[in-house]
């Protein structure tokens, strides 16, 4: 049986092997961000013009770069899990390091973006935002709330992947560790999902 078939057949087992705590975390993510995005669309429906103007403050170029970094980090975390399953420890560690690297690039890019935004006064409660209509402030608040929460979750993800690197280097390639890798990949990919939605909603739809 090929590894692909094996993976496909094990998906159900892997999903059931993933701890209920992880599913609960993903469920909480879905509910919290779902609520925030729904709020965004309600306010956008009420003030489409102001939301469009406020969204022009965000750089689609930096947003695109963020999404590509997250998608690439998702690729590497998945390749890491596949390498672990194939007992290729060195390759798995390489891909885990690559994931951390792309995650750090994402954070650096976000920091640069926030700095650029603050230069133009685009941050909550700034003097610049006080001069603008309330709806634009709402956009700004929602953007920073969603992005800030996302960044916080990415930092947690980096810690989780970092811990995975340590455990892999210690040679704990056992069934339990494989399930941990699956959980780490699931969590990290959920952050990419969030990144894709944040980009589409705030940068492109606005």
């Amino acid at each position: 049986m090929s590894i692909t078939e094996n993976q496909a057949n094990n998906v159900g087992e892997n999903n059931s092997g993933i701890s209920s705590g992880m599913w609960l975390l993903l469920f909480l993510e879905l509910v919290v961000f779902g609520g925030l995005f729904t709020s965004f669309f309600v306010f956008r429906m009420l003030h489409p013009g102001d939301f469009l103007i406020a969204s022009k403050q965000l750089s689609p170029l930096l947003g695109t770069l963020n999404v590509i970094l997250l998608l690439t980090s998702s690729l590497t975390i998945v390749l890491s899990a596949a390498s672990l399953e194939g007992k290729r420890t060195s390759l798995a560690v390489f891909f885990q390091f690559a994931t951390v690297l792309f995650g750090l690039f994402f954070l650096i890019n976000k920091f640069y973006e926030f700095t650029a935004n603050s230069y133009f006064g685009f941050y909550p409660d700034s003097a610049e935002m006080a001069k603008r209509p309330d709806a634009q402030s709402v956009f700004c608040w929602l953007y920073y709330m969603v992005s800030g929460l996302h960044i916080f979750l990415v930092i947690i993800g980096l810690v989780v992947v970092g811990w995975k690197i340590v455990s892999t280097l210690k040679g704990r390639i056992i069934e339990e560790s494989d399930r941990d890798a699956e959980s780490a990949a699931l969590y990290w990919n959920s952050l990419t999902v969030l990144g894709v939605i944040i980009f589409s909603v705030f940068y492109l739809i606005g």
């Binding site: 998906v11 999903n15 998945v78 990919n189």
Partner: peptide, 10 residues
Amino acid sequence: VIARAFMNIR
């Protein structure tokens, strides 16, 4: 696509 291919969710 991410859920199916990367997260292995059926």
